[in-house]
Simulated assay, not measured.
Amino acid sequence: MGIATATITNAEEYEKVLSTSHPVFLLFVSARCPACADAGPLFERIAARHPDIVSLVLDCANTPQHPHVKGTPTLLVYVMGELMEIIEGFDPIKDQEKTVEELFDRYVQRPLLHGTT
């Protein structure tokens, strides 16, 4: 788990990545996107602190077009293979770190306490 810059070449590879019990964050970026220059490193830094989340940075130039990605940066969040969130951009630059950190915190898997429901 953790962060990786990856290339996904076909639908089967998407399915393989999503077939985990851990949350999966797919950040789609483009080298021609000025916002991606900030979003990518921010995402990688925060993802490194959350090893229970599978986090991939996908360059749109090397990855087949995804139907939910209309522009970059776009983050897709999956749980148990189901698309939970689509985040287009990361808010104004001054709020980006807080926004991304809160997003990761929502999906961190916490152990269940005995005796709770």
Rank of each mutant, 00 (worst) to 15 (best):
G115S: 07
D91S: 09
L18D: 09
I8V: 12
L42R: 03
A6G: 05
H50K: 14
I53C: 08
V24L: 02
C36V: 02
C60V: 15
Y14A: 00
F90C: 04
T63E: 05
N62M: 14
T117Y: 15
I86T: 11
F90T: 01
E13I: 03
G81F: 02
G71Y: 12
L27W: 00
P111I: 14
Q109M: 14
V100A: 03
I46L: 06
G2I: 07
M1N: 13
T5K: 13
V17G: 04
I3R: 02
A39F: 05
D95I: 12
Q65N: 09
G89D: 01
V29F: 06
K94C: 09
A39W: 00
K16P: 05
C36T: 01
V77Y: 02
P51M: 11
E88P: 08
P67A: 02
T20L: 07
R32C: 14
M80C: 15
A6I: 07
L26Y: 00
S55K: 02
F28V: 01
V54H: 04
M1Q: 13
N62I: 07
N10W: 08
T117P: 08
G40Y: 06
N62L: 14
L56Y: 04
T7Q: 10
V69M: 03
C36F: 00
H22T: 13
P92D: 15
A61I: 04
L27E: 00
N62A: 12
E101M: 11
D105M: 13
Y107A: 00
D52R: 10
T74G: 02
C36N: 00
Q96K: 05
K70L: 12
T20G: 08
M84F: 11
T5R: 14
L113Q: 08
E44R: 09
I93E: 11
V54M: 13
I87E: 14
E12W: 13
C60M: 15
D91A: 12
E97V: 04
L26V: 04
M80P: 07
A48I: 05
A47G: 05
V57N: 11
G89R: 03
N10I: 05
L113T: 12
I3M: 13
S55C: 11
G81S: 03
C36Y: 00
L103G: 02
D91W: 08
T5H: 15
